[in-house]
Design a protein around this nucleic acid. Sequence first.
DNA 1: ACCTGAACACCGTTCAAGT
DNA 2: ACCTGAACACCGTTCAAGT
Lengths: 213, 213
Amino acid sequence: MPRPPTSPAGLGRDRIELEALALIEELGLEAFSLRKLAARLGCEPMSLYHHVPGKPALLDALVDRLLGGLPRPPSTDAPAARLRAFAAAWRQLAREHPQFYLWLALHRWNSATGVALLGEVLTCFHAAGLAPEAAARAFRAWGYYVLGATLDETRGYGAGPSSLHPLTLAELEHAHPRVAAAGAWFQPAQFDTTFELGLAVLLRGLGVEAGEG
Amino acid sequence: MPRPPTSPAGLGRDRIELEALALIEELGLEAFSLRKLAARLGCEPMSLYHHVPGKPALLDALVDRLLGGLPRPPSTDAPAARLRAFAAAWRQLAREHPQFYLWLALHRWNSATGVALLGEVLTCFHAAGLAPEAAARAFRAWGYYVLGATLDETRGYGAGPSSLHPLTLAELEHAHPRVAAAGAWFQPAQFDTTFELGLAVLLRGLGVEAGEG
DNA sequence: ACCTGAACACCGTTCAAGT
DNA sequence: ACCTGAACACCGTTCAAGT
């Protein structure tokens, strides 16, 4: 009684990768392990090695999967609109996979999928009329901003306290009233507005968007 | 024969923390362990627990140590100059501790030291004449950019390939000539120029620096 | 007060063996 | 071809014991 190649009982890369993605969000990236993944899949830890070379390779495969699935803006849109759309899709991906995002963001995208995506973004800067050097630098600066924002949004205030001797709210308000007051604009509900503000400044200042837009 | 409190034979937090900082850079953040630190210090792993509550607490103490040691610009400088100086000092710190920087950058600075530093930076935006909300959002956008740039500089291209099937240089030049050509401006020698470009755009667009400087 | 040794509950991964 | 079980070399940390 041979079973189909993607039978739920068989492992296969798809089932392994999808379950890994879910388990990472459930447990956190640090607590995720191949042994727990195997338990979730109902197999022995070592069975995974017949489908995946090891843990780093599995995580890199997840990067490729997510990069490949990122929605692309229509190439008929204006360059600035396309860059806003790329940033929005990327932020959405970070929001959907906050735990995995640390690995996703900080590993080199030197696979075919990753380089293709980088090329699409870089093309927007060329399409905006920038010379090669200006386009390369603007691409980089834009990436710095998007990277920092998404990491801060997923791993910053949302991640909870980590210090040995954290300041209490009362201490904060007494010692640093301005920091305490600014906290109102550091809430998740404000993320979109703040992100758009900085992005608009960058796109305009980098020469991607005309002054009168 | 009682020994002085900071004797080389005794452990003490200072010796533990300084050795940890050095060992993290030597081995990499992921490979660093308390057991290896103990071996380096010539003691048993469990001896460390008499000076430090655990591994995360030790790393958070290192954050506090480095934040406290960050050089501060003179408060007589103009706000924009101070923000450039903070960014430069921060980038320097990242360059000196590229391995530890991932932990340093992504843990909440809710200690007294951390909040004081955040307050000093936020004050620059107020001093530039921005209203509380604009200052809070500009502070955040500035931080996104600095965070992303430093992480990319320390963990990006410098960290080597990670993908399962990386593109070769020849494949890259054939399939994505523009990405390959842009690589010339992605080298470490170009980091300063690119960083300053984006920072200038942000400071000007956020209203920190006047149009005519 | 400070350090030690054995032990516990985990890791990723190798290897030889099963079907 | 695919899965398993035992084993190896690691982790962080607890606990009881030493001085």
